[in-house]
């Protein structure tokens, strides 16, 4: 019968309207009186009596609740995580970056006993503005020193701010993404919990002791 298809369309849209929105309102969600009361775990009446000021605000539609969508722990994000203690300055990441946006300048290190095996990193610039977050730099890092980050809201006002310098990498709190790091996944680590990982716990293998390094050094000679 004619009109049945049109009627079906009306039914589907009405069902969707009753089910309510599925979108996430980043970064916070406006809730009404009922929503705010539910967030606080009170009944709306309790809420009105106990916190009348907030209740009026909520009834006027100004109460907000933080709303964030849960991200996967493997999310390949913007702020790279770098562990200087693991990095040898081999520049594999720079070599294999498809876009060539990583710049590394190293100098031989005097401070470490195994002089010559570990280098000082003088420059480690990652130009986020051209990065496509493929994660190949992380994939090829033989010492698990470079990790993808999990942030995504690092908008800046100038292009030059998009270049991550070695100092920024040194000072930032490391919450590495578990992308291409199964060893992190095994420990059920979630970077979005905000918990940071020290350099000793992110590698596939233990850092060799100085003695071991000495031995290997001699052996390979």
């Amino acid at each position: 019968m004619i009109g049945l298809g049109l009627l079906n369309g009306l039914i589907v849209t009405m069902k969707a309207a009753i089910r309510g929105p599925v979108t996430v309102q980043y970064p916070d969600r406006r809730v009404g009186l009922l929503g705010a009361a539910r967030e606080l775990g009170m009944s709306p009446f309790q809420f009105l009596v106990k916190r009348p000021k907030d209740a009026v605000k909520a009834a006027a539609g100004f109460a907000t609740v933080e709303d964030k969508i849960a991200q996967g722990p493997r999310f390949r994000g913007q702020d790279f995580n770098w562990y200087e203690d693991r990095c040898t300055g081999c520049a594999s990441c720079a070599k294999f970056c498809p876009l060539g946006i990583i710049e590394i300048v190293t100098s031989p290190s005097d401070t470490l006993k195994s002089q010559g095996e570990v280098y000082n990193i003088d420059v480690f610039d990652i130009d986020i503005g051209r990065c496509m977050f493929c994660g190949i730099c992380v994939e090829v890092c033989p010492y698990d020193a470079l990790h993808m980050g999990s942030g995504f809201e690092l908008g800046t006002y100038e292009r030059k701010d998009l270049v991550i310098s070695v100092d920024a990498l040194r000072t930032k709190k490391n919450t590495p993404s578990t992308w291409f790091r199964p060893q992190l996944e095994e420990t059920a680590y979630n970077p979005h919990s905000g918990e940071s990982r020290p350099w000793t716990e992110v590698g596939r293998h233990e850092q060799p002791t100085d003695e071991e390094l000495n031995e290997r050094w001699v052996d390979e000679r």
């Binding site: 493997r74 999310f75 493929c134 992308w179």
Partner: peptide
């Protein structure tokens, strides 16, 4: 995103 950390450009 769970599988590979990216939503569109998966690689």
């Amino acid at each position: 995103e769970l599988m590979c950390g990216a939503r569109i450009t998966n690689s």
